[in-house]
Amino acid sequence: MEKLQFTTTKPESYIGQKPVIAKIGFPSKSMISLSFVDGRILSAPLSRFPSIGNLSAEQKKQYTIADDDTIIFDHCDEIYHIQDFFGLPDDYILKR
Rank of each mutant, 00 (worst) to 15 (best):
S51K: 01
G87I: 12
P89D: 12
F85E: 05
K29Q: 04
V20D: 04
I41S: 10
T70D: 04
S35L: 12
V37E: 15
F49T: 02
R40W: 04
L55C: 07
P45K: 03
I82Q: 01
F36P: 04
F6L: 08
E78S: 11
A66R: 06
S28G: 12
I52R: 02
K61Y: 06
A22Y: 11
R96L: 02
S13C: 06
C76Q: 06
Q62E: 15
I71Q: 01
G16Q: 10
I21P: 08
D67F: 15
A66S: 13
K29A: 01
S13D: 13
D69P: 05
I21G: 00
K61Q: 13
K29H: 06
I15K: 02
I65V: 08
S13N: 11
N54Y: 07
N54C: 12
Y80P: 02
I32F: 03
I52H: 01
T7S: 11
L46Q: 00
R96F: 07
D90S: 04
I93A: 11
M1H: 12
Y80I: 04
D74R: 07
I93L: 14
Q17C: 03
S35A: 13
D67I: 10
E2F: 08
Q62L: 15
D77A: 08
F49G: 00
D69I: 08
E58I: 11
K10W: 06
K60S: 07
K95P: 00
D67W: 10
Q62Y: 13
Q62G: 03
V37I: 14
A57N: 08
Q5W: 06
Q62V: 10
T8N: 13
E78N: 12
Y63K: 01
L42I: 10
L55E: 01
V20F: 00
A57R: 00
F26H: 02
I72S: 09
A22K: 11
F73V: 05
Q17D: 08
K95N: 07
T64E: 15
T70V: 13
H81N: 14
T9L: 14
E2N: 04
G87K: 03
P19I: 05
A66V: 14
F73G: 04
P19C: 06
T7P: 00
R40H: 07
R48T: 03
I71Y: 02
I65Q: 03
A57Q: 05
L34F: 03
